[in-house]
Design a protein around this nucleic acid. Structure first.
Length: 895
RNA sequence: GGGCGGUUAGCUCAGCGGUAGAGCACACGCUUCACACGCGUGGGGUCGCAGGUUCAAUCCCUGCACCGCCCA
């Protein structure tokens, strides 16, 4: 189509360039950090996605923002390290592989045995582990891939062992028997954070327990979980409850079981609720556990790991599922006449966030981390501002959780993960050590002889290893130079949903082992929802695949949309129309470049924007400087939406809509004279501004900008010094130009007003008339001369000359310092023009009255800042002047 | 129950003490020599409700209503 192979096509085709361009960046080492350099470091630790996961829209948001920060800081001359990697994601990954085994009717993991199963998981990791990192590349993310880490890498695993051993020796990790959240499907303990409570319409059953030694006397207890009664070891009443005072100290006979259990007084019983008496099952309820401990009640565990009834329950229930037993217990109690009533009861039921089954509080031995101790210096660090949350309100959420933190259960009954470095002797005495040899040595010392040791089968919570991410990836515990250089990081970018899971724990481990916070800023971004504000989920069918969107609209459009919508403190409701809108913006940039190319706007080596002569060019240079500064300030303040807005408005609404339109008459002017100099300068300035747009846009929209950077140079036969992404962020030594701005504002105002009147008076677009400027001030006359071609071209006039003569059939446009008369013989309807002017005058009247209200208010004059008063006085004067001109204009056409 | 956030144009959202903004959508007009993924012009808002502070409130304070999220 094009005559010249270097001429740009009409539209930008993202799909044609993105992958190849990315590969070239990566191959050229553009993403690499340079620990040997003298530049100040800038570090972002990438939150490691699940190794077997795939990219969702939330990833697209978080990685776009991080990439924008990294690319921007790289351009400002910092030695930027964006540390990438993936997480082994213990439960999630193990579940996937187990599901595969089940689907292929293969052996279960227990049938396979630990070694074979782990080999299987590793091979799955090898096979699918590259998916997400490949997808990150499609998104344009620019981390230092050569430094990619995996949480189960040798080095990172060593870090895990060292941390575990040290914390154990410091007494901050310990083994304890207490209730855990047990997942009966996955057969593992999970932490509080992995439990989600769901609202459920349940029931409250009221059972009558016969009091021992008092025939026909019963005590009624309410329960939402009848099956747990088989493990009851007490009944609690409030110490002040008169109804039951006499019964405290006696026992009840537990129906169906026959066990004699005591009635105890405990504050936990709420006299206002139900009967005021509660059954106590210490082995299966977190509250009851506390009551049981306080009152020395027995702890009877009646469930097995599948949450089926075990040998501690009466024989007929053994081996049956908890929910089956629930029905049986209720039926039997009813048959015995011990079921008093059933009420509907709204309640919350705990579910495992991975398995989706009801979680069972279960009494087991687990490893715990004393989070309370580790949390204290983190709280202090945030209080003192050594780590800063952006937006700040998340600090409250952080404090709230950290100040009420519970022991962190860190052991998981899984195989995929870091196996706990603990070995047990014959008497179950634990030996925690860095290696098996060390454990054996310790054991020999302890027992005075060689003994057989058994390694703890369990692995650590996935978040235990990710908590070390900010330093384990840098080489810790070895003394790597990177540690000193890149720790602490500058900012951590993440969603609020993992403040507790991850942010808080990185702070605990970072402060404890590195002696300093792991990052200075924590930028918490929004969650991406669908356009109706609903969470995206596969079951709802409303997920948007970021890569599909990239394929349709181009990666830059997707990135720019997410950036533009990333306002602080608000969730993002993403509508596809927005992406299409920003795709159009990308095309607009493309076409601006195409226009400049067609008009032979070529970068002039040594072009100095400070030295431009024409008002037009002074103006656009000043505007460009302003835009670049605006983008930089916004990115540095994490106001990504502002950065996008500045970029968008400058490029489209200033550069394309006005400057390029103004440049057209300059480019098409006849050869010869001073015009030739102006033409050359405008060409050079246009090329320069486009370059600046590419530079400041690069962090947000790297593909189209880099592509244009190359293509423009190629067409102009210019050699660029390297990729756009390594260009220095511009530092202009250019002052604002208020005179040029005022002058161009006037030109814009004149054009806009003439266009407006033309449309309102239904003047055909093709009609070009010879207009005059009546009562023009000296300044206006000068401007008219300078910008005559621009005004005529853009307002579609044949000519515009200063002339005080009255024209009979004219539309009259009041502008600053004059009135434009548009002769419209045969086109204009004078009555309509009178109406129009009257309306404008009325508008001015209203404005002036509004200002007068203020200016006649003594309080306002006395108390408002003088500059505000002056501003309103000036505004009023301007309006009065304009109104006078309008009145004159109206008088001229009123017979 | 506790905490946090939201309520601004038809939709999605900025703004957060000095006469209300954007994108999309809508209406009208444009084959204006980069772009119809475009150009121009326009309509559309008592800034959730009620009080208070202030010369001045969409913006600050109090209360209420509704919506959402987190934690019990």
């Amino acid at each position: 189509m094009t005559e010249d192979s270097t001429t740009l096509d009409k539209t930008y085709n993202a799909a044609d360039v993105e992958e190849a361009l990315y590969a070239r960046w990566e191959k050229a080492g553009e993403f690499a950090a340079h620990p040997e350099s003298k530049a100040a470091p800038y570090t972002i630790m990438m939150p490691p996605p699940n190794v077997t996961g795939s990219l969702h829209i939330g990833h697209a948001l978080t990685f776009t923002l991080q990439d924008t920060l990294i690319r921007y800081n790289r351009m400002t001359g910092k030695d930027a390290l964006w540390q990438p990697g993936t997480d082994h994601a213990g439960i999630a990954t193990q579940m996937v592989v187990e599901r595969q085994l089940a689907e292929s009717k293969g052996p279960t993991r227990r049938e396979m045995g630990r070694e074979a199963f782990l080999a299987r998981v590793w091979s799955w990791k090898e096979q699918s582990g590259g998916v997400i990192t490949h997808q990150l590349r499609r998104l344009g993310a620019s981390p230092d891939w050569k430094r990619e880490r995996f949480t189960m890498d040798e080095g990172l695993s060593r870090a895990v062992t060292k941390v575990f051993v040290e914390l154990f020796r410091q007494g901050l990790i310990y083994r304890d028997k207490r209730l855990v959240n047990w997942d009966p499907k996955l057969h593992t303990a999970i932490s509080d954070l992995e439990v989600e409570s769901r609202d459920v319409k349940g029931k409250m059953w009221y059972f009558k327990y016969p009091v021992d030694g008092m025939p026909d006397t019963f005590i009624t207890v309410g329960t939402t979980r009848p099956e747990t009664m088989l493990g009851d070891t007490g009944v609690a009443v409030h110490p002040e409850d008169e109804r039951y005072k006499a019964l405290v100290g006696r026992c009840v006979i537990l129906p169906l079981v026959g066990r004699k259990i005591p009635i105890v007084a405990d504050d936990y019983a709420d006299p206002e609720k139900g009967s005021g008496a509660v059954k106590i099952t210490p082995a299966h309820d977190f509250n009851d556990f506390g009551v049981g401990k306080r009152n020395n009640l027995a702890m009877i565990n009646v469930f097995d790991r599948d949450a089926k009834l075990n040998e501690n329950a009466p024989q007929k229930f053994q081996g049956l599922d908890r929910f089956k037993v629930r029905d049986m217990v209720v039926a039997e109690m009813e048959a015995l006449g011990l079921l008093e009533k059933i009420e509907a009861n709204a309640m919350q039921v705990p579910y495992g966030d991975r398995s989706g089954v009801v979680i069972e509080p279960w009494l087991t031995d687990q490893w715990y981390c004393n989070a309370e101790v580790l949390a204290q210096p983190c709280i202090k660090a945030v209080e003192e501002g050594r780590t800063r949350f952006v937006p700040k309100n998340w600090e409250n959420t952080f404090f709230e959780w950290m100040r009420n933190i519970q022991p962190w259960c860190i052991s998981r009954q899984l195989w995929w993960g870091h196996q706990i470095p603990a070995w047990y002797g014959p008497d179950n005495h634990p030996f925690v050590a860095s290696s098996e040899d060390e454990a054996y040595a310790d054991a020999k010392k302890h027992y005075g002889k060689d003994v057989e040791l058994r390694r703890d089968e369990d692995v650590l919570d996935t978040w235990f290893s990710s908590a070390l991410w900010p330093f384990s990836t840098l080489g810790w515990p070895d003394k790597a130079p990177e540690l000193a250089r890149y720790y602490p990081g500058d900012v951590l970018v993440t969603g609020f949903d993992i403040i507790f899971f991850w942010v808080a724990r990185m702070m605990m481990m970072g402060i404890h082992f590195m002696g300093d916070v792991p990052f200075r800023d924590v930028y918490i971004h929004a969650l991406v929802r669908d356009e109706k504000g609903q969470k995206m989920s596969k079951s709802k069918g409303n997920v948007m695949d970021p890569l599909d969107l990239c394929n349709v609209y181009g990666t830059d459009a997707v990135r720019f949309t997410l950036t533009a919508m990333a306002a602080q403190g608000r969730d993002i409701k993403l509508a596809e129309t927005r992406i299409a809108g920003y795709r159009n913006f990308i095309t607009k940039i493309w076409n601006a470049a195409r226009f400049s190319q067609m008009n032979e706007c070529v970068i002039v080596p040594g072009f100095d924007p400070k030295g431009v002569k024409t008002t037009l060019n002074k103006w656009i240079v000043a505007k460009t400087v302003e835009a670049a500064r605006g983008v930089a300030e916004a990115i540095e303040a994490y106001r990504f939406n502002d950065a996008a807005t500045v970029m968008y408005q400058f490029t489209w609404n200033i550069f394309c809509d006005w400057y390029l339109e103004f440049a057209k008459p300059v480019f098409s002017s006849q050869a010869g004279g001073s015009d030739e100099a102006a033409k050359a300068e405008t060409r050079a300035a246009t090329a320069w501004v486009i370059d600046q747009i590419l530079i400041i846009g690069q962090p947000m929209i790297p593909f189209v900008t880099e592509t244009l950077w190359e293509k423009l140079a190629e067409a102009a036969k210019i050699k660029r010094a390297g990729f756009l992404m390594q260009q220095p962020w511009p530092k202009y030594d250019i002052k604002p130009s208020p005179e040029a701005e005022a002058e161009m504002d006037w030109v814009v105002d004149v054009i806009t007003k003439i266009r407006s009147v033309r449309t309102e008076m239904n003047v055909p677009a093709s009609l070009q008339m010879a207009a005059t400027l009546k009562d023009a001030s000296t300044g206006a006359k000068a401007r008219l001369v300078t910008h005559n071609a621009l005004i005529c071209a853009n307002a579609r006039l044949a000519s515009l000359k200063a002339d005080d003569a009255v024209i009979a059939n004219a539309a009259q446009v009041v502008v600053g310092e004059g009135t434009v008369l548009l002769p419209l013989e045969g086109v204009i309807d004078l009555s309509k023009e009178r109406e129009r002017l009257a309306k404008e005058i009325a508008k001015k009247d209203a404005d002036i009255a509004n200002d007068d209200k203020k200016l006649t208010n003594e309080g306002f004059i006395a108390k408002a800042p003088p500059e505000v008063v002056d501003e309103i006085r000036e505004r009023r004067a301007g309006a009065v002047d304009a109104r006078a001109k309008m009145n004159e204009a109206l008088a001229r056409i009123s017979a």
